[in-house]
Amino acid sequence: MPKGQTLGMGELETVENRPFETAPFAKGAIAANEKRDDIVVLTADLGKYTDVYPFRDRFPDRFYNVGMAEQALVTVAAGLSRTGWTAYCTTYGAFATRRAHDFLAIACAHGGANVKMFAGNPGLTTGYGGTHQAIEDLALMRAVPDMTVIDPCDATEMRQIAEQAGEIDGTVYCRLLRGNVPVVFDPATYKFELGKAKRFGDGADIGFISTGFMTERCLDAARDLARMGVKASVLHCATIKPFDRDGVAEFAASVDKVVTAENHVLIGGLTSVVLDALQEASILKPMLKIGIPDRFIECGSIPYLQNKYGLTAERVRDSVADWLGVRAEAAE
């Protein structure tokens, strides 16, 4: 893997070999307000970097920037919700879940506040190191009672969630994909459903259970593995909470081996909730767990980091091939 350079702040990552959409969150939020007329968007000095300026330009009196103050961001949103508004907040996931955790838990989730937190830079989607990479955010938010937790895969799903979030009761934590976001799901046929996992393919040798952008990687890896004689299918779990326990158990029962994949540490995120679900259903399968190791990650270019920590499609394919003892070269 050639070494690269950490991107400048706000510089957009290029998307190769796949269609992409720019700022799908903003499009979804604008569509939501055109329909509902009750959305207020707040950010904490990261408006440009969380794709909210198109919303501000379209609805200038429905936008507040509170400055670098995540506690104010969340409490002000909680106050807006108490006067009948649907409050969309944006900041980076690292700041939302570490700095403002008490406020998301008590000022929002505890009273069922209509606050939707869209949290940028999930996992290894930024090169700015441990301070900016939200690698344990799903675990922190999943443990909060009455909190809905979502990790979308692509531009299609991101836009749909931004459009529908107001219809979800209570407080929502959703990872935000910003900038140029790959289009993996066909917008004409894909429909995000809260708490419902989506199956792709019917291969039974390997069952990938994935969330967030790892689903894109697993779909690509499954295609490569097919050329190596391994038949795989993918179950995309965008909603981490409430989790589709039955769907996951049914899926796992239909395959020989399971591979979980998440853009998150292996503590408390997708892998943990999958293991819970399978144990409850008394399903025991050989399992490979793909995720971020239990340590803070350094700065670097995004492709470099994702490759180093095993989150690219090629690394997923090779990890599975190694695990199965088949030769990865056959796919080349």
Partner: peptide, 15 residues
């Protein structure tokens, strides 16, 4: 928590 919530409510009522 209270002051921030109050600021949000003040904005919400004004809106």
């Amino acid at each position: 928590h209270g002051l921030g919530i109050a600021v949000g409510a003040a904005l919400g009522l004004r809106l």
